[in-house]
Each structure stands twice: as C-alpha cells, then as structure tokens.
Design a binder for these strands. Structure first.
Length: 484
RNA sequence: GCGGAAGUAGCUCAUCUGGUAGAGCAUCAGCUUCCCAAGCUGAGGGUGGCGGGUUCGAGUCCCGUCUUCCGCUCCA
C-alpha cells in the first residue's frame, strides 16, 4: 500500500466520522473492536443502497421474491450447512515464527512427508493420522498437543517445536435460548443469511407458486467471530448481507453461473462506477459447498478486495437439510416430469462493503482554480445521485426579505418525493461546501430575483455549474431522477 | 492472536528536562446581506483513553488495560 493510498483511506475514515456517516460503536466506552454504527447520513446512504439492490433483484424481476428470516435458527441448521464441522477448528501457534496453524493441517502435512519416504515411515504416517482422527473426535486438545510434541513436528517456518497450547476457534457466536439456565439450549447467531432461504425453500416456492428457475432474495445481518477484524467497516463481526439464491434445474448451473456473474457486474456499473475499478477473481480452492465460485473485486484504497461473491452451491445445502430434517425438499418439474433437489446459484454482496465501496469511489479532494487566479480546494463525495443521502439543499441567499419562506415552500413541495435539506447559516459558498462534503447532488439558491421572476439558481455538485431555472420546474425536474 | 506505533477540546496539534492545559479550525448566538470555504463580536466545550503505582506534586516517569493504525496471521 503506498503512502498516498494509505492517507486516502485514513481521510475517508475520518470524513465518514466527521460528517455523520460511520461512528465506532459504543465510542464513549472506548468503542468495541471491529463494530461500527451508522450515523444520520450513513444510515440514509445504507438504506438507499439496500433499496437500490432490492428493487433491481425483486421488483424488476418476476421470478425473484424476498423474505426476511430470523437471525436465530434451529441449531441443526448449522450442522447441515457444514458450519459446525468446518469452522470450529483447533489451532496452534508456533511461538518462534508467530505463525498459527490448523492442528489437522499441521499433522497431515507432517504425515505426508513421512509417506513420501515410504517403508516403515508410511505405516507410521497412517497410524499417526488414525490417532489424530480419534483425538479430534474427542476434542482431546492435550492429547493432540502431546501427539505433536511426541512426533517432534516442527513449525514449517521456524523449524522449531516451540508450540503454544491448542485452542479452539469458533467462527459462530453462540447464546442461550430459554431463560431457565438448566434447560437452555445453545443456539448460534447466523454466520450467513443463506440458510434462512434454504430452510424456507418449500414454503416460499409453494406460497408464491414459483416455477424453476426462480430466486429468493434477502437482506439481513450475519455474525462472524473473526480472529482479526479490521480495515474499518470492510471486515466486521456484525455485518449485513444482501443475497439471492437462485434455484435451477441440475445440470444448468454453468449457464446460470455465467448469467448472474454478468448481471451482477451490470448492477455495479449501473451506478456509474467505472469498469476498470472491478475485476473477477475465480476461486481455485473451493468452499465445501461449491462447484464454482468467484469474487467480484473492487479496487479499494487498500487494493482489490472482494465486495460480492457468486457461488455455484450445487444441491449441497438443500440435500443436507433434507438429510438432517427428514423432510423432502424436492421440486417437481412439469416440463421434464421429474422430481429433483434444485441446484443453486448464489449472489451474495456485503452491504457494508458496498457502502465502503461507494465512499471510496466518491471521496475526492479537489483543487479549484478561482476566477481571481487564486486556488481553492474542496472535499466532495461524488455519490451516485440515486443513492445520495440528501438529494437537494435549498438555501436562501440571505435569511430575511421573505427568502426563507420561499425556500420552505419549495422544500414542502419536494419532500414527499426525496430528501431535502434547509440551511440559512453562513455564506452561500460555505453552505455549498458542506453539501459537497455529504454528497448532495443539487443545491437551489433563492435570491431577490426569485421574488421578481420566480427563478432560482440550481447548482450541480460535480461540475459546480449553476443555471437559472424557474422555481416551479425544480420538483418536476428532479423527482424523476430519484426513483430507485 | 503475535510484533511495532499512537491515544491531550468535534478536528489538527502545542505544552523545554514532572510544578494547577493552550492555539487554529469547527460548533452555537449576534452583527454583516454576501452566488462557491477561511469578515466582525461574544459564548460553550478538556477530572490529558481508563485503572493503578512512584512523587510534596504526573498529560509528562513506571506497570496494567482498552481502543485505533501498520506488518504478519485468518477470511467458508
């Protein structure tokens, strides 16, 4: 990361706090690590991003419907999804290299080196793995550590056997359901929203009378106990996902995967963000549920990073839920006269990451050449106007002579359609700058001439160009532009 | 989680080797009546991240802790 990019990221974080977009959570108590709150303009922007996504995925498509599932789910859900088995791994740290390893990976790689030697060592390796599996099944961490020490397994980096104790890291947050301590059942805060869709698959399909291919969309919070959560709102422990699971006939997953890959990129580009800022990253190492997966990456100030994932999830989730629940989760396809468990293509975008993407894209420190030859500067957020927190600021040039009254009247006319802002304090230039800093795309200034001929100045955020137009045309002209 | 750095007003920072905390900007009120920040007057705002220790006395020295940033690690 270059110094310049680093500074830019710091500036964006500071700007987000100063102008009421994002605050550290519980800040008066020193904050809570990797948890953030959205302020007045932030919550407005976040809501607009949600609406923009929701409309494009549901309202604009006949075959996708939405749901809003609970964060708490039956504990067996997470056994079926693979989260319990795959994401609660015992880990061990090498004190010299300061590197952390998954215990099973460490022992397996040692066993592999033994196997390559052949002969006696090959047998020893198999025995080692068998012992390891037995210990893992019992969660016997002391036994596992002894196993590592007895075999003198070395850290691949340091080459030493100076190990910490083995500790369990679980990605899922747990809590107790039921107020009576003894009867309480451990349940988890969902680590992804997808499972709420899968367990409701038949409910939704039947009540909405949907035919494959169809999709179910959902926006909601998910929780992951990341070992290291950092980079502002990019990786948080509590975050919000916008995802859609698209149910298809088995065997058609390749074409639908390609379809959604392109559709989702189009959505990003529709906000006016340049194509060069995006790239696809194909996964070579696939997750336990996927047969193909890619990330849509954005060029953040700290490099290209994932903002959205497209995953071909096969029938992994529905099959497993069928297995664990003993409920049939098949679909009858009239066209081919067959029952089957549908395959799934998932599109999953991090709402908070999208928010950060918009800030990163929008934030700009401009130098302006003034008419008198001197230089000036401004900080401006070029937020795509359709998702801007405030759409229009109405500013009386001075706060008397009846100008405020005219301004209020214009706001009353516009506010049913889009968010407006009124301000009469400070010089007009200063007020323009404040609106630039929160990304307001349009400002209208009421002056004395307004009283004579009903015209006002309409000022554009990005170009700073001003034009004189009739006050009665403002609302009509703008409201069309802000329909999400 | 490990290592490094930092934490003083909303923001940016100052306070020489320990001696009762200061500026600019911002905010608010008033004046000015202005079409692209930085005009005038006044006001509010800090138990120096938090806790403990050393000292007659700690923002300043020591320990702990929390948070943030950087590097490593993790990221279905």
């Amino acid at each position: 990361m270059s110094l310049k990019q680093d500074n830019r990221f710091q500036a964006i974080i500071a700007h987000a706090k100063e102008y009421g977009f994002v605050f550290p959570s519980s800040e008066i108590y020193d904050g809570l690590s990797a948890v953030y709150d959205y302020g007045p303009y932030g919550s407005e922007l976040k809501k607009n991003i949600k609406d923009y996504w929701w409309k494009s995925m549901t309202q604009m498509r006949e075959n996708i419907v939405g749901i809003d599932a609970a964060i708490f789910m039956h504990p067996t859900t997470w056994k079926a999804s693979g989260h319990v088995d795959n994401f609660s791994d015992p880990m061990i740290d090498n004190k010299d290299s300061k590197k952390r390893w998954r215990v099973d990976h460490l022992i397996e790689s040692y066993a592999n080196t033994l196997k390559e030697k052949g002969g006696e060592d090959e047998k020893k390796a198999e025995q080692l793995l068998a012992t390891m599996d037995a210990l893992l099944a019992k969660d016997d961490f002391v036994g596992l550590k002894n196993l590592i020490e007895d075999n003198k397994i070395k850290g691949p980096i340091s080459g030493t056997t100076n190990w910490t104790d083995i500790r369990q890291f679980n990605l899922m947050f747990s809590t107790q359901l039921g107020s009576v301590a003894g009867d309480a059942e451990t349940i988890y805060l969902r680590p992804e929203t997808a499972q709420g869709i899968f367990v409701n698959f038949l409910n939704v399909q039947k009540t909405s009378r949907l035919k494959i291919p169809f999709g179910i969309a959902q926006i909601g919070k998910a929780f992951r106990n990341e070992i290291v959560a950092r980079q502002f709102i990019f990786r948080m422990r509590e975050f919000e996902q916008m995802e859609m699971q698209f149910f298809i006939r088995p065997g058609t997953q390749k074409e639908w995967y390609e379809y959604w890959k392109e559709e989702r990129l189009k959505w990003h580009l529709s906000l006016g963000i340049p194509k060069e800022s995006y790239r696809f990253h194909n996964h070579t190492k696939l997750a336990h549920y996927a047969d193909a997966a890619l990330d849509i990456e954005y060029d953040f100030p700290f490099g290209f990073k994932e903002v959205e994932g497209i995953h071909s999830r096969t029938d992994f989730d529905l099959s497993n839920h069928q297995k664990y629940s003993n409920k049939k989760l098949t679909y009858f396809d009239n066209e081919i006269n067959q029952h089957y468990i549908p395959y799934v293509i998932e599109t999953s975008i991090g709402l908070d990451r999208m928010f950060l993407l918009i800030l990163s894209y929008s934030y700009d420190e401009e130098v302006i050449n003034k008419e008198d030859g001197t230089k000036d500067s401004r900080v401006v957020l070029h937020i795509p106007e359709i998702i801007a927190p405030i759409k229009l600021a109405v500013l009386p040039l001075i706060k008397k002579d009846g100008l405020p009254e005219i301004a209020r009247k214009l706001i009353d006319e516009c506010k049913p359609y889009f968010r407006c802002f009124y301000e009469e304090k400070d010089t007009i230039g200063k007020r323009y700058r404040r609106q630039d800093a929160i990304g307001t795309p349009y400002c209208v200034t009421i002056d004395h001439q307004t009283k004579e001929d009903n015209t006002v100045t309409l000022r554009y955020r990005d170009t700073m160009v001003q034009e004189r137009i009739n006050i009665n045309a403002i609302c009509e002209k703008l409201k069309e532009r802000f329909i999400i």
